[in-house]
Design a protein around this nucleic acid. Structure first.
Lengths: 164, 164
DNA sequence: CAAGGCGTTCAATTTGTATTGAACACAATG
DNA sequence: CATTGTGTTCAATACAAATTGAACGCCTTG
């Protein structure tokens, strides 16, 4: 660690690895870190030059970050370029990124769960339940329980406060 | 939804998509779901046959699941194969999987953060602080705050109880 | 101790996805 | 209205990670 530029560089690398580990590419993390550690708002050109990434990627990534509320568009008078600065609301950002990550999947899983439950209930009433019905029922109940607890936790006031 | 086998099949597919979205392959989720919805302990051969995956993949995936405590090795007398049954402790499983997902990254990020902090502190004392020092300091403080809150949240009793 | 059954390993391959870059649309400017 | 400076799009590509399968080692059994 020799000078201030080193710090930024290493945080950029670390953030890149982090977002990559989460399944979003390296660029998103790097871009956010770069902007976060810049005193002035940054343009797409700044990003492509400093980070050595393509303009297309910069454009898409910035848009993604904007959607998560991680980055904010600012206008600078007399400038035609778009400039961005970092939002510091880490908790909210993580939240949105997480929803993006598992949102669709859990949604469809939810649908499958209720569909299965109703089918199973109906199938019981018919009077000719398959041999597995009880077993299935018990297993699905456990899933349902967990889903409910997780859902409750996710929306709990404590989480909202601490993880704001 | 026509019969009980349908349910299992669709849960297998859903679980596969879920683990894939999280960055672990499709197989891990499918295998767990298959075992979870099996009344009897399952062998590797069962898995390769039912799911149409290779023996190598089954072996590695099962080992991973075992490490997360998602699956338990059981012995059946007179059988030479290894059999596995599902653990239902979803919370604990998720916890371990999450640690695997972000553990290494956050660890090295932690190290980077403290290293940067000490460097910055030392650099202040030298009397010739770069122009950016204050800015850097403020930004790193925000990161530190978030890290501490996240850490506290992760280890909070509420999480431990609800997400057990 | 030979033979067959079983799980494991790892280099090769396949698959999925991030990234690129050329083409494009739009606005501002002269 | 041509030109220049922007950001966006998306098919092509490159890259990383998941998956395969043949080779291996270890038991067990006869």
């Amino acid at each position: 660690m020799n000078d201030a530029a080193d710090i930024r560089e290493r945080f950029v690398a670390a953030a890149g690895e982090f977002t990559q580990a989460l399944g979003y590419g390296r660029n998103i993390g790097q871009i956010y870190a770069h902007i976060y550690f810049s005193r002035d708002p940054q343009s797409l050109d700044n990003l492509t030059e400093s980070l050595g990434i393509s303009k297309g990627s910069a454009s898409m990534s910035v848009r993604q970050l904007e959607q998560w509320g991680a980055v904010k568009h600012v206008w600078i008078k007399g400038e035609r370029k778009d400039f961005y600065e970092a939002c510091e609301d880490f908790g909210r950002i993580m939240r949105k990124a997480l929803i993006d990550l598992v949102g669709r999947t859990t949604e469809s899983a939810d649908a499958l769960l209720t569909e299965s439950e109703t089918w199973l209930a109906a199938n019981r009433k018919t009077g000719r339940p398959p041999a597995d019905t009880d077993f299935l029922n018990e297993r699905m109940k456990k899933i349902r329980d967990f889903r409910n607890r997780a859902h409750y936790l996710w929306n709990s006031p404590l989480i909202r406060v601490l993880f704001k």
